[in-house]
Design a protein around this nucleic acid. Structure first.
Lengths: 353, 353
DNA sequence: TTGTAAGCGTTATCAG
DNA sequence: CTGATAACGCTTACAA
């Protein structure tokens, strides 16, 4: 006999069809199946692993036995010899940020479709917490998707040297990533504002550690300069509704006629604060955001925003990862994800100064 | 030498401080640590497992060696002899439903705080897909939280006979669950409507398989009857914005002056459709929902709703689970989660018929 | 095609 | 307090 393994709560009646005659009372193993089928355990392993490695007759017998015993392979036991866990990790900064929903859904779908399990960890917008979370899930996964990382580039590189890593909305040398075509959306947005007579706009930046905030700002700067529009950066700010509200005063002080927030959450905060101050949007102030999250078209006026393909991003990221761990055959497009300007009610003609 | 284990991508320079002198080039094992510390592997296991099972001196030596080798315990290897994976599963119907965000966050926090990993699976509102998802993650977890299950009670019972299971928003005999105090919130809501002169209200039900929809309807029926208010149930409907929109026509046909939707998403759908038909809310129709999701106070008019404590629900559910797998000492309160009526702009005086 | 046996990294029993 | 050693359930050369 061995050590522990007291997982056999074989009290409750089995209910359906699971006659259970396993050695230890616990879940059936390939040994039990092998006994029942009259073959060697290794044959069971082969039959249930890759098809065709065993004769049709025996395979049928084995499958029947497995079904009768309600056998399911123990993933931990399988992971030990192979080193592959069939599990992927997804790390996000804030799981209640609607922006991540799409990513999570896309990732979960792609993963489960490939027979992989997805473990998710939240970093609460803190680099340290993120490092800890990664540390914790790392040994149990075959690869990791970092969706909104606040980690320094060198830490990411170091991580990527050990395990397959795919980044979303973040570029680090030598590490594969899924990125949106920021320039197009931003170009359209700035053109839209320009056409409506805005000559001075403000960008409400996100957190310092947000690569994407940098990137959006850079694109904005290019586009604004090209059109001779004055632009200022206000921030950094927390990428939340409250972050947007808190930045409102500085925004107004800048006398910008249009505000572009790092994300929709912040844009919503700005709009709420404007409403609280009796400032009409878009009459006295135009507001735009990024991502097009759930809620952006609910608010009044509905938010003009640069839509990102979040579900696709999640899908592609795990697709990449699966390819890196050698788990699929798909060809992965590596082009940037298209970005679209969605014009709604929160932007309009510049207030006459 | 053994079979596979080609996880050693020992090319990229180690970066920081990880002098790596492991046997196989791969991650360090307790054997490597034992070698370096000059002790037996079993001693390393003891030292790193529970404290105090080994002399202070050797423990220090072992910890130093472990640190130098950048050793982290392989959870798979550990799970094999113990049968415990230190992983919990969370199954949700629809991960993009804002209602689940809170649950996921609460669950993730409670889990990671206890050193557990959370794997999440989505069932896409389908009982079969849910069964498959559970099947897939089951062998790798110590217990499961079913957050918005569409499974039949007997399947849940059968599941619970094998692994610890905790339900959220669903009661099944013999299976622990985290439930809200529906009656209080519903009572307040109906009183609120009554005070505003509503004599006939409609309930827009959720999916057939939703226990919570049943439960809310039952509470509504009680409260309405007690006040002599006429009430009708319309449905079943998909628990989404579109589900709410689709139910709009039948709602109006009922001539109810107030609509109570199974959840906020549906309520939002109703409001959107009302707006599309030029029907004023709450002037011509009062609308209320359940949960108080993100977005409910963004929409105009803001939604009156019965708020649920979703984060707390997630926390309690994994708290329960941890207790069941013997992983903590907390005392778990098992009272119902308080529910609060949040009155906002979407409800008002009944339209004079 | 199938059986044999070694090994994956850790824990736990049993001596010493 | 610590060292051997046998599991845990599965995969995979290697033989037969």
């Amino acid at each position: 006999m061995s050590g522990t393994g007291e997982q056999g709560r074989a009290d409750a009646p089995q209910g359906d069809a699971a006659p259970r005659r396993t050695r230890s009372g616990g879940p059936a193993t390939i040994y039990d199946v092998a006994d029942l089928a009259g073959v060697n355990p290794s044959t069971v392993s082969r039959a249930l692993g890759k098809p065709g490695r065993v004769s049709a007759k025996t395979e049928a017998r084995i499958r029947a036995a497995a079904a009768e015993l309600d056998f399911r392979m123990n993933p931990m036991a399988r992971a030990l010899p192979t080193g592959r866990t069939n599990t992927l990790g997804l790390v996000v900064a804030d799981i209640t940020n609607p922006m991540v929903f799409g990513v999570v859904r896309g990732a979960e779908q792609a993963a489960s479709q490939a027979g992989f399990t997805l473990v998710i960890a939240e970093s609460q917008e803190s680099g340290e917490a993120e490092a800890t979370a990664i540390e914790r899930i790392l040994p149990g996964v075959d690869g990791i998707v970092l969706a909104t990382t606040r980690l320094a580039s060198d830490r990411i590189s170091r991580l990527a040297a050990h395990k397959p890593v795919v980044l979303i909305n973040r570029a680090v040398d030598g590490v594969p990533s899924v990125l949106p075509d920021v320039d197009t959306g931003v170009g359209d947005l700035v053109a839209h504002l320009d056409e409506h007579g805005h000559r001075t706009v403000a960008f409400l930046a996100g957190p310092t550690a947000s690569w994407m905030s940098e990137r959006r700002w850079a694109a904005l700067l290019d586009a604004a300069e090209a059109r001779g529009i004055a632009i200022v950066e206000i921030g950094p700010n927390p990428p939340t509704i409250d972050g947007g509200r808190a930045a409102y005063r500085r925004l107004r002080a800048s006398h910008a006629t249009a505000a572009i927030a790092y994300n929709d959450l912040m844009a919503i905060g700005v709009m709420q604060e404007a409403a609280a101050h009796g400032v009409d949007v878009p009459g006295e102030l135009s507001v735009a955001g990024f991502d097009d999250i759930f809620g952006s078209e609910l608010i009044v006026p509905a938010l003009t925003t640069v839509r990102a393909q979040l579900v696709l991003a999640g899908e592609r990221a795990v697709g990449q990862l699966l390819a890196m761990v050698g788990a699929n055959g798909h060809d992965l497009p590596d082009d940037l994800l298209a970005t679209t300007l969605v014009v709604r009610g929160s932007t309009g003609p510049a207030a006459s100064a």
